[in-house]
């Protein structure tokens, strides 16, 4: 019989470790046509980080994301970055880029201020213009200001900055401290169907609510969460590296190391819970790894809800679930004494 169950998994996840140096650096150069070049050491692995980083630079400079030319991950030319690891890119590299763009913008403001007869701190950069706050009609195109800065004032608008979440050493006596800069939180709910005659588990629905600070690019956040759920489902139900007693892997290819396909994916509802973090760039934290953390817990809780067995070693394969169901049934079998 197919039995249905629902389960919940919750988690928190740290962003931006502070126990050791964790720096990122960036350079932003505003060109005389109003575009900008961003140099960053971080690596794009498909998660869309360069898009998000270009959005951060564009927002700070008041230009369009299309105006930002990103040069990344080249040790010959780009500044140092700790790496696309630990869900830190948006938070740490994003902060460095925001600071670098701020520095470039400061030069633009200092050049534009006398031209607009105001003080630099009365200016803002919006819609590819440097304009006087509250008086948007008093403005100059960023391209003109950049050109003026380079060829008349002799101050090319370039900003460089680095960001390192303040390193806090652990107390060697107690092991206490502040190991991370900020934290993200998430809850995922799973609905599963378990066949109690075969032990097969089918995830039919997942709902995921993730706090990631400000979602700078909600479509990419959704993509990260959906991808994390597929990895979580593989972790919960399918994926296992098997070794023989000599340490050789028994399932070294994708025929027998089973990972989720399109048929294993349930309907997914993604809920982005925005939560401004004052230490992140425009309030952003991160979303990468956390997405795969609560999935397996939610699925195992749903299995318990469906058939009343706790699976305590992953993956919860059909064999394991069926064995657990049989053990449970045997232990619940009432002993009926023979009639005397």
């Amino acid at each position: 019989m197919i039995r249905r169950g629902k389960g919940v998994g919750c988690m928190w996840y740290p962003i931006g470790f502070t126990v050791a140096a964790n720096p990122s650096a960036a350079t932003v150069k505003v060109n005389e046509d109003g575009t900008a070049t961003l140099l960053t050491g971080t690596v794009e692995t498909g998660q869309g980080s360069l898009t998000v980083l270009a959005q951060i630079a564009a927002e700070e400079l008041g230009v369009s994301t299309d105006d930002i030319h990103v040069v990344s991950a080249d040790t010959d030319t780009t500044p140092m970055d700790t790496g696309a690891i630990a869900s830190r890119t948006t938070y740490v590299t994003g902060n460095a880029i925001k600071l670098a763009a701020e520095n470039a913008k400061k030069i633009l403001f200092e050049v534009a201020a006398p031209l607009l007869d105001v003080q630099p701190n009365q200016l803002e950069a919006v819609d590819r213009k440097i304009q006087v706050q509250y008086f948007p009609q008093r403005c100059l195109p960023i391209a003109d200001v950049a050109l003026q800065a380079q060829f008349v004032m002799g101050r090319p608008p370039i900003g460089s900055a680095s960001y390192n979440p303040p390193t806090v050493g652990m107390d060697p006596e107690t092991g206490q401290g502040k190991p991370f800069s900020t934290y993200v939180y998430a809850t995922q709910c799973a609905e599963v169907e378990v066949d109690d005659e075969t032990g097969e588990v089918d995830v039919i629905y997942m709902s995921a609510a993730h706090d990631c600070g400000t979602a700078i690019n909600p479509m990419l956040v959704e993509g990260q969460i959906e991808g994390g759920i597929s990895m979580g489902i593989g972790f919960a139900l399918q994926e296992e590296m098997l070794f023989d007693d000599k340490g050789r892997q028994l399932n070294p290819n994708l025929t027998n190391y089973i990972m989720p396909t399109s048929l294993d994916m349930p309907e997914i509802d993604v809920d982005i819970v925005e939560n401004f973090d004052p230490t992140g760039p425009f309030g952003a934290k991160g979303v990468g790894e956390p997405t795969a953390v609560p999935t397996a817990a939610a699925i195992c809780n749903a299995i318990f809800d469906a058939v009343g067995v706790r699976i305590t070693s992953l993956p919860a394969t059909a064999e394991k679930v069926l064995r657990a169901i049989k053990e449970k049934n045997n232990s619940e079998q009432k002993f009926i004494p023979a009639a005397e």
């Binding site: 498909g46 998660q47 959704e222 993509g223 959906e226 991808g227 994390g228 759920i229 597929s230 990895m231 994708l254 990972m259 989720p260 396909t261 399109s262 048929l263 994916m265 997914i268």
Partner: peptide, 20 residues
């Protein structure tokens, strides 16, 4: 049917949701 047709193409990043 779309899920069936794409089941022979593995993807590790996206969870297939946006592909579908």
């Amino acid at each position: 049917e779309i899920k069936d047709a794409l089941s022979g193409n593995l993807c590790r990043c996206t969870g297939y949701t946006k592909i579908i």
